[in-house]
Design a protein around this nucleic acid. Structure first.
Lengths: 190, 190
DNA sequence: GTCTATAACGTGATAGAC
DNA sequence: GTCTATCACGTTATAGAC
């Protein structure tokens, strides 16, 4: 029933990830999934409308993934280690962060799902770091919220490094170094 | 004499910073500096050619700035502190790093000046961190080169945070936190 | 719901006058 | 060197048939 609609959404998610909003035309999306102009504009009012729907779904999926990873029973710092240590392909870019440099980020419909993801991630990391601080694993001088933002920046900047150096692992070295630094500023060292 | 040529270059530098390569048309550049099509294609073969020239100059300027900042007489860690602590307007984006997410980064003429800047910056930071390690200010467990890449990632990711949260100071909080973390993992604490 | 045809506009570049 | 006119093509969308 909603076959073409789902196809268009799937194609949009793929191309928005690979090329961003400005780099993806309605025509590209149609060709990707074998739909015509009619299907596109029957199911979605504009390109922006389709992109907003697609990004809303991607944002929700990514928030769920982050929750699964950061809400475990493990100690706070180990949950953060899991987040930093999960392998990433730096050449693909972040499906949310890639829009930061685009003009399209000025569009509320684009920015909303993106910001919602980052706010959610920051909350999860802050909670984990706060727990680490309470338990004495982390130094008292660091503020969990500021530290959470820093770690998110490392991941986003890691994507930049990977793309520039054409080295998909550069981002993983950056996150590993961040974790090492975090652990080295830890109170309990046995 | 080379008045229009210089005007075109200046306009290109400005617009490439604000809108990126794909977001800037030859027409935009002409209008920005009051030149016609003729001037554009007399002085530059293509849009890519003009962009490469403009980015080459911006890259050189930025490398010089970085050298001035990081080659002082100060102790290694203090030079790094100067780099991290220099205020940035996170909403403007990095004139080199902003191309990382664009398809244009695949063009050798675009990528070359960008990569050259990041390589230079990494060398300068590595040297400063190496000195800090030699003098015992920094822990022996951290590798200067990996740490340098991490700090560059923090700055680039800081731009992403600022743009997404519409908070030009978000990047400065990220770099300040990175410096605090670096200092807290330091050996000599008086 | 899905298709093809078409339109209005912008892009990147060329031609040729001055 | 600089200008205006023009071009082939792509983009975002609308119209109307099936």
């Amino acid at each position: 029933m909603a076959s073409k609609r789902e196809g268009l959404l799937l194609a949009a998610k793929k191309l928005l990830w690979e090329r961003g909003y400005e780099g993806t035309s309605p025509r590209d999306i149609q060709d990707e999934c074998g739909a015509g102009q009619g299907s596109f504009y029957h199911h979605f009012e504009t390109k922006l409308d389709l992109a907003a729907t697609a990004l809303g779904e991607v944002s929700a999926d990514m928030r769920d993934d982050a929750s699964d990873l950061l809400n475990s029973e493990l100690p706070g710092l180990e949950r953060v280690a899991l987040f930093l240590g999960r392998g990433r392909d730096g050449l693909k870019g972040c499906r949310m962060g890639r829009f930061a440099a685009e003009a399209s980020i000025a569009e509320p419909k684009i920015r909303a799902p993106v910001k919602r993801y980052f706010d959610h991630l920051e909350s999860l990391l802050t909670a984990a770091l706060d727990e680490a601080k309470q338990s004495g694993t982390l130094q008292a001088s660091v503020e969990p919220r500021a530290l959470a933002a820093l770690l998110i920046a490392v991941v986003q900047g890691g994507f930049v490094l990977s793309r520039i150096h054409r080295d998909k692992a550069a981002i993983n070295r950056a996150t590993a170094t961040a974790l090492a630094l975090l652990r080295s500023s830890t109170t309990s060292r046995r």
